[in-house]
């Protein structure tokens, strides 16, 4: 029986980058979760910002839905810059 809550931890490594999931910690409350995450995941100055969220509150997509959720994006090539062929004279765009 876990008396402390499981929290997922997200670290932003430097300014400008997104928070990235790094793992989890156990804690009794939110403040402790931030502190425990700091001790565990930023001992070597890996981060400038932390998010913690109770694992139970994460809503995840199911692997069974992988096709309906992600496959449709595969054929929308026009969303990608490389789809558009421009003459060399245009240079870098």
């Amino acid at each position: 029986m876990s008396v402390w809550t499981l929290y997922e931890v997200f670290v932003r490594s430097k300014h400008g980058l997104n928070h990235k999931h790094v793992g989890s910690v156990h804690a009794a409350d939110d403040a402790m979760a931030i502190e425990n995450a700091r001790e565990l995941y930023t001992r070597r100055s890996e981060g400038v910002s932390l998010w913690v969220v109770p694992s139970a509150l994460i809503v995840a997509s199911s692997p069974d839905e992988k096709d309906p959720l992600f496959d449709p994006a595969d054929d929308k090539v026009y969303r990608h810059a490389s789809f558009y062929e421009l003459p060399d004279e245009v240079g870098h765009m």
Partner: peptide
């Protein structure tokens, strides 16, 4: 708690 091991040592 193991988390506390880390914190005390820190």
């Amino acid at each position: 708690a193991i988390e506390e091991e880390l914190a005390l040592m820190n």
